[in-house]
Simulated assay, not measured.
Amino acid sequence: MIWNSDLLVASMDTSVTAVEWAISELLRHPEAMRKLQKELEEKVGLERIVEESDVEGLEYLDMVIKESMRLHPVAPLLLPHESMEDCTVDDFHIQKNARIIINVYAIGRDPSVWRDPEIFVPERFRDSNIYLRGQDFRLIPFGSGRRICPGLQLGLTVVRFVLAQLVHCFNWELADNIQPTDLDMSEAFGIVTSRAKHLKVVPAYRLNK
C-alpha cells in the first residue's frame, strides 16, 4: 500500500509542478503565451475547450514544454545509477560499482550545450530532433535507459493536456499587481523541485461560450 501511494503522489506532484513552472514562464514571456494561444485557436477554435485528441501535433506546445522542462526539471537529480564496469566518460575514470547521480538541472543550463541557457526560448526546439524520451542526453527530465521514468507517457499526456486547457480557456494575470519581470522564480529543492512560493494568478475566461 505504501508503494502504491508513493507512485500516486509522485505522479501527481511532478505533473502539477511541471505545469506550474510552464505557466510561470509563459507569464514572464507574454509573446510566448500569445503564440501558444494562437496555435490553440487555429487548431481548436474559440467555440470549445481542448480535447485530448487535439493535443497531438501542437508544435509550439511541445516546444514550450521542452523548454520549461529544460530550465525547470521537476526531478533535477536522477536516481543513482551503478556502473557495471570500469569506464571513462569525458576523461573521468568511473570505477566498477560506482554510484552515479545525474544532475539534469546542470545539463539543462550548461552553456557548452545550450545557447543562452538561462533564457526561456521555446523556439530553440523548432525543427529540432531533441525529444523528451531519453534518447538525447541534452534533455532527459524523465531519465534514460532501463531506469527511465515508467510514467513518462502518462506524465507527458497529462502535462500537455492540462497546460493546453489552461492556456486556451483563460487569459492569466499575476495577482497582487506583480509585473511579469518581477515574478519570483525561486525554487524549493526536494525530491521534486517546485516553486518556493506558489504561483498566484487571476484567470479570465476567453472562449465564446
Rank of each mutant, 00 (worst) to 15 (best):
M1K: 08
M1R: 10
I2S: 06
W3T: 00
N4T: 11
L8G: 02
V9E: 02
A10H: 06
S11R: 06
D13W: 01
T14V: 12
S15V: 11
S15Y: 08
S15I: 01
S15R: 05
V16Q: 09
T17E: 01
A18W: 11
E20G: 08
E20N: 15
W21N: 11
W21H: 08
E25R: 03
R28S: 08
R28I: 01
M33N: 08
M33F: 09
R34N: 07
L36R: 03
Q37T: 09
K38L: 14
L40Q: 05
L40K: 04
L40A: 13
E42T: 05
K43L: 01
G45C: 08
I49C: 14
I49N: 12
V50R: 03
E52F: 06
E52I: 09
D54L: 11
V55T: 14
E56N: 14
G57S: 08
G57Y: 07
L58M: 14
L58T: 00
L58N: 10
L58W: 07
Y60T: 06
Y60M: 07
M63G: 12
M63N: 13
V64A: 10
I65A: 10
I65G: 12
K66C: 14
K66N: 07
E67Q: 06
V74R: 04
L77M: 15
L78M: 13
L78K: 07
H81E: 02
E82Q: 15
E82T: 10
S83T: 12
M84S: 15
D86R: 05
D86T: 00
V89F: 12
D90E: 05
D90R: 08
D91A: 06
I94D: 02
N97P: 03
R99N: 06
N103W: 11
N103H: 06
Y105N: 07
R109N: 03
R109E: 02
S112H: 11
S112M: 05
D116V: 02
E118C: 02
I119C: 14
P122M: 00
E123D: 15
R124Q: 06
R124H: 09
F125L: 09
F125I: 10
I130Q: 07
D136N: 15
F137V: 05
R138T: 05
L139N: 06
I140V: 15
I140Y: 05
I140N: 03
F142D: 00
S144Y: 13
R146W: 08
R147E: 07
I148L: 11
P150M: 03
G151N: 00
L152G: 04
L152M: 13
Q153W: 05
T157D: 01
F161W: 09
F161R: 03
Q165W: 02
V167S: 01
N171G: 11
W172N: 06
E173I: 02
L174V: 13
A175Y: 10
D176M: 11
P180M: 01
P180K: 00
D182S: 14
L183Q: 03
L183G: 14
S186W: 04
S186I: 01
E187F: 09
A188P: 01
A188C: 11
G190S: 07
G190K: 04
G190A: 03
I191P: 03
T193K: 06
R195Q: 13
K197R: 13
K197W: 00
K197I: 07
V201N: 01
P203T: 00
A204I: 04
Y205R: 10
L207N: 08
L207H: 06
L207M: 13
N208A: 02
